Structures are given as structure tokens and as C-alpha cells.
Simulated scan of single mutants.
Amino acid sequence: MSEQSTFPDLRGPWEDAEQRIQDAHKAVQELKSYLKQQNEQVISEKERLEIQKRAQIEKERIQRSQTDKNKLKQNFEALQSQIGTQNGGYAFEEWFYQLLNFCEIQSKRSYISNGRQIDGSLTHEGTTYLLELKFTKSLSGAQEIDSLKAKVSKMADNTMGIMMSISGYTKVAIEEASGSKTTLIIMDTSHLYLFFSGVMSFQEIISRIRRHASQTGQAYLPVSEYYN
């Protein structure tokens, strides 16, 4: 009936035939309006259910992500008793690549280049970073910084280096890593715990230190200064 536009049955000898036809047209229009409204409500309900479904999926994804991040943190802390040992170093390297996989950061595991051992690399925002992972009890010094600098200098222009030193750095090491044209950014345990806290993603942490290095020439950015 909602598609009907003519009403031959209403045409006849009745005095009010025209009025009847007008009333019929009006009824059809009202029916069309009602059906349209009902259809919109159905679509709206479908959209609402779809939004709820997507929200639930995202909630579950976040919960899984948080569970996986907590597991990463637990595994990292379980390694602390092995700091300074060869096996601990290997285990930390394996753990670090689990971290990169969790963060969906493109990476390459350790390899030999030009006779030099490279702990691996990661690529972030179009830049490839050679990795140097230090799982030692002592602070990393200028010698370790110079070694990474030398490795980076053998690579393409768009290559930089990231050093992750669990025990931190000497003052001289930080000065050696820094400079107006520094190719390094250096990190320590505090940056890992910033990631664990959920305040920033690991990608955001890398970007923040890189920006700081570009603006100041300083390769190290303490977590306490992230929002200054």
C-alpha cells in the first residue's frame, strides 16, 4: 500500500470522491513516513549493536595487551638475578625482541656486519637503529658508546643507534653519546618501566628521545624530564 499512488476504486459518483482521494494520498504519505522511521530505527539499532560489538572487541584486545605487558614485565624482573652473566645477556636479548614483537616494531636479530657483531636493529618512523644491549652490573662507559658509534658510522646515512643499558651510564658516556650531530639515543631501565606503566608506548619513548636529541644534541633524556 505504501507504494500506491493512484486510487481508481475511490473515483466514482461520490460527492466527496476528491476528498477521499486526498485522504488516501495523505494516509499513504503517513505510512511511508512511518515505515521510513521504523527502518531508520532498525538501522540505528544495528549500528548501536555494531558499535557495542566493536567496543567489546577493543576492550578484550586492551585486556589481552595489558596481560601480555604484565607478562613481559614479570619476565624482565625474573632476569634481574642474572645481570652480569653471559646467559643473562642472551636471555635479555631474547626478551628485548619479545618486547619489540609485542610493540609491533620491525626488527632484525643479531648479525655480523663488516666483521662487527651487531645486537640487531629496529626500524621506527623511517629510521633504522642499530641496537646495543647491555645487561651488566656496571654502568656503561665511553668505550661502549664509541663502539656503537663506530658501527653506526659504517652504515647508510639514515642509520642511528640505540643503546639499552640496564644499569645506566657514566657521566662521560652520556657526554660522549651526545653532540650537535649525534647519531645515538641511549636508554636505561627507567625507560622500560615508563613503558610498563602504560603512560607511553615504546614507540613514543623512542620518538621523544629522538626529538630531544635533535633539539638539544643530548642523546639521553631522563624519564623525569619527559614532560618538561
Rank of each mutant, 00 (worst) to 15 (best):
Q4K: 15
T6Q: 11
T6E: 13
F7E: 04
P8D: 05
L10R: 07
R11D: 10
W14P: 02
D16C: 08
R20C: 03
Q22H: 09
D23M: 13
K26S: 13
E30K: 15
L31Y: 02
K36G: 07
I43Q: 14
I43A: 04
E45L: 14
K53F: 13
S65N: 07
Q66K: 10
D68V: 04
K69E: 01
K73T: 02
L79A: 09
L79I: 07
Q82I: 00
Q82V: 04
Q82A: 12
I83Y: 03
I83V: 15
I83G: 03
G84Q: 08
G89I: 05
G89T: 05
E93Y: 03
F96T: 02
Y97T: 02
L99F: 09
C103N: 14
I105N: 03
I105Y: 08
S107F: 08
R109F: 06
S110A: 15
Y111G: 08
Q117D: 14
T123Q: 09
T123E: 13
H124M: 10
T127G: 00
T128P: 00
Y129T: 04
Y129P: 03
L130M: 05
F135H: 08
T136S: 10
K137D: 11
A142N: 05
E144V: 06
A150Q: 14
A150S: 15
K151E: 09
V152I: 12
S153C: 04
A156Q: 13
I166W: 10
V172L: 13
I174P: 01
S180K: 12
T182E: 07
T183K: 15
T183E: 09
S190Q: 11
L192C: 08
Y193H: 11
L194R: 14
F196N: 00
F196G: 00
F202E: 00
F202W: 13
Q203R: 09
Q203L: 08
S207A: 15
A213F: 05
A213P: 01
Q215S: 13
P222C: 01
S224I: 07
E225L: 14
Y226F: 15
N228E: 12
N228F: 11
